[in-house]
């Protein structure tokens, strides 16, 4: 049975339950109160991590790395939640995770960190990540990571990965029009930009947390600061959306529905 080194590229994003407001500061665009907002693992990267953990569990001898470029303090906070979900070794880069960064620079950081992992074996290397990001969906970062690592086999919008006994990979990818495409390749190395996958979020496992945290804190302490270029934004704004609350007592459901549709049309 093949054994893999699965490197998951995944950063953090503000908790999607927060109210986010873009603002322009002296260093370029950012989110209002960004440092105060709680953060979570980028949901797309989360799917990739849980798929990686599942793959590693089914292929004993495999190992999962999480390479993450994010502000160290916030990353540490997120590890307090993610660390219980799946066994992995953290490779931390102390960098911005605001989403207002240049994707090529982020890809360079990630590729450099992956290349520097001790004992990396390209013949067993699978690079995972989200095909999108909840902070700013450039949709190209994983592709550029693969290019920098010289990995030609790349799959985006992946929902399922099946490994053959001989190490061949069969990939279910989303394509236009709501369809799926099945591709295959001979094996590692390969890059996978995950869509949602099929796995639920793993349960919290205290033993996994205890084991992970022994390595997470040293990894965070070793994290080196790195900068990424800030592209020039002409303007940054949220989709026009205004909460409007009104109590209605005498409208039928049909009338309410019509009004909502009209309101959506206005916005």
């Amino acid at each position: 049975m093949p054994q893999f080194q699965i490197v998951v590229c995944g950063s953090i994003v503000p908790d999607p339950l927060q109210t986010l407001e873009p603002v322009t500061g002296p260093a370029g665009p950012s989110l209002k109160n960004e440092l105060m907002l709680p953060a979570v693992l980028d949901p797309w990267a989360g799917h990739a991590l849980y798929e990686a953990a599942n793959l590693a569990r089914n292929h004993p001898g495999s190992k999962v790395y999480l390479v993450s470029a994010a502000p160290k303090a916030k990353l540490q906070q997120v590890m307090m939640t993610v660390g219980q979900k799946a066994p992995f070794e953290l490779v931390a880069i102390d960098a911005s995770a605001s989403g207002f960064t240049e994707a090529a620079d982020v890809a360079a950081l990630l590729a450099g960190a992956i290349a520097a992992i001790p004992g990396l074996d390209r013949s067993r290397l699978l690079v995972f990540g989200g095909w999108e990001s909840a902070s700013r969906g450039a949709g190209v970062t994983m592709q550029m990571v693969g290019e920098r690592l010289g990995i030609a086999e790349q799959f985006l919008a992946v929902d399922q990965l099946t490994v053959g006994e001989d190490g061949t990979l069969e990939v279910l990818e989303r394509i236009e029009g709501g369809s799926h495409q099945i591709s295959s390749c001979q094996g590692a190395p390969a890059v996978f930009g995950w869509a949602t996958g099929n796995l639920p979020e793993p349960r919290n496992n205290p033993q996994v947390g205890m084991q992970n945290m022994r390595a997470i804190m040293p990894a965070l302490q070793k994290a080196k600061p790195a900068s990424t270029g800030v592209p020039s934004f002409v303007s940054v704004s949220l989709p026009k959306q205004q909460r409007e609350t009104r109590v209605v007592k005498d409208l039928t459901p049909d009338e309410v529905a019509r009004e909502i549709v009209a309101w959506i049309g206005e916005n």
């Binding site: 540490q76 307090m80 660390g83 219980q84 302490q221």
Partner: peptide, 17 residues
């Protein structure tokens, strides 16, 4: 407080549990 505690490495705090 939590971030300082975790940075110390001496204790572990697990939310969501």
């Amino acid at each position: 407080v939590g971030s300082q505690l975790m940075a110390s490495g001496a204790v572990q705090v697990w939310p969501g549990t």
